[in-house]
């Protein structure tokens, strides 16, 4: 099966990516549940991935897609470690509300 070149300009992909990134920022800054904050960070990583893939396709350079591959590996490692930290925190304080987890506050 042969794909034709799409006629969607690069700006559309970048606009979608910017919108998703901003929604992720709203989630990180307004939500108080540590797990939701974490998911929002994952979404921000994803929107940057979209930018990388879009530029890779429009410029004809595979480096962007390789970088996305590495970003996904880092995101997987980060999710595992972060969730382990959240579980350890929950064991001590019985909460995931980031307003109450303030022992590292100066």
């Amino acid at each position: 099966m042969n794909f034709t070149l799409t006629d969607i300009p690069l700006n559309y992909y970048l606009g979608l990516s910017a919108t998703l990134f901003s929604i992720g920022i709203v989630g990180v800054l307004t939500r108080r549940n540590a797990i939701i904050v974490f998911i929002c960070i994952e979404m921000m990583l994803n929107s940057v991935n979209l930018t990388l893939v879009a530029f890779s396709a429009f410029l004809g350079n595979p480096t962007g897609q390789i970088l996305v591959f590495f970003v996904m590996a880092v995101a997987a490692a980060e999710a595992a470690v972060g969730l382990a930290i959240i579980i350890a925190m929950f064991r001590n304080k019985m909460t995931v509300n980031i307003d109450e987890i303030n022992i590292m506050k100066w």
Binding site: F3, L5, T6, D7, P9, L10, N11, L14, G15, A18, T19, F21, S22, I25, S56, A57, F58, L59, G60, N61, P62, Q65
Partner: peptide, 28 residues
């Protein structure tokens, strides 16, 4: 931040990268 990003996307001339590169089919 959203406004800044959108302005940065809209401001360049619209002729910039309208279609995907012919290589795109191969590199993915």
């Amino acid at each position: 931040i959203l406004l800044e990003l959108i302005i940065g996307i809209i401001l360049p001339p619209n002729t910039f990268l309208q279609t995907q590169s012919p290589e795109a089919v191969k590199i993915g």
